[in-house]
Amino acid sequence: MHFDELIGHLGQHTVDGLSKGAIYALIALGYTLVYGVLRLINFAHSEVFMVGTFAVLILWNQLGVENNPPVGQAILFLVLGLLVAAAASGGTALALERIAYRPLRRKNAPPLIFLITAIGLSLVFVELFGQVLPKLLGGVLPEAFGRPRQIVGMPTIIQQETLFTIGNTAITNIQLIVFVAAVAMMALLDWFINRTRYGRGVRAVAQNPETAALMGVNQERVIMLIFVLGGIMAGAAALLWSMRFGFTQNSIGFVLGLKAFTAAVLGGIGNLRGALLGGLFLGIVEVYGATLFASNWEDVIAFVVLIVVLMFRPTGLLGESLGRARA
């Protein structure tokens, strides 16, 4: 137990946790949106994120990005990366919906069947990017798929620098960008769901599918929309991840997805603002916990948090709702 270390650098650990949690929160949105409308856990959402990171990787390789480009170029690469990752992840999420979930919904399958299908899909994607694509595309895209199942590095777009220090807390440029970008994406989504016509449709279906259908909301379109929106958020998370950590692997989705799901449950699954709160909270708890014990216990902390939350407050911090509370 390293209490002194934790208390002495409390500010620093909090900042680290926030920037980590921001990525969890972005991925958590995908779980929350789908759950809010369909009451299903889209277990394959973690792979939607993974596809996004590979899209960024391939884009940057094709553009011939080198380490530490000038600022103007760096911004261009990031914006392009965001677009490509969002397109790839959104497209993947939509494909999952069309190919796998829709036939099951037609048959009114029990929730567990959805979950098992999603697990199968997740396995298929992990293997596609770990085995099949490296064999098929290893010659064409050697930087991305050269070594099956291995960690692939990406160029450093922004050199990590300390921007300013408050007390003994240093805040780096990357942490600031990750946090601000993630919160901005979430604010955008929140605005979209709460203020636009499409968002109203989403809330209506979440609240009561039959009545929404009677009022002329196209349910199928709403379902497609939420999958795409969740995918776009996962794509944004993929870009921020690539920028901050600079690597990807076919299996990164698994643990990250579990943590994002924990974040969603923690904040109240189905609740957009809850996902933000849950993500940030989980990020902080994890960094504190890793400091207190040792960093190799980090993953255990997230799962213990999940079990404790489900035991004592299964509706999460802010309660389950998408449209329900404020319709």
């Binding site: 856990i41 579990l258 924990t262 799962f303 999940l306 079990i307 489900l310």
Partner: peptide, 23 residues
Amino acid sequence: PTLRLRGDYLAIVTLGFGEIIRI
């Protein structure tokens, strides 16, 4: 603690349990 939960929550919690044992 977990069997009072809904089925799909239970699935994810048990997934976490398997990982905890391994770690």
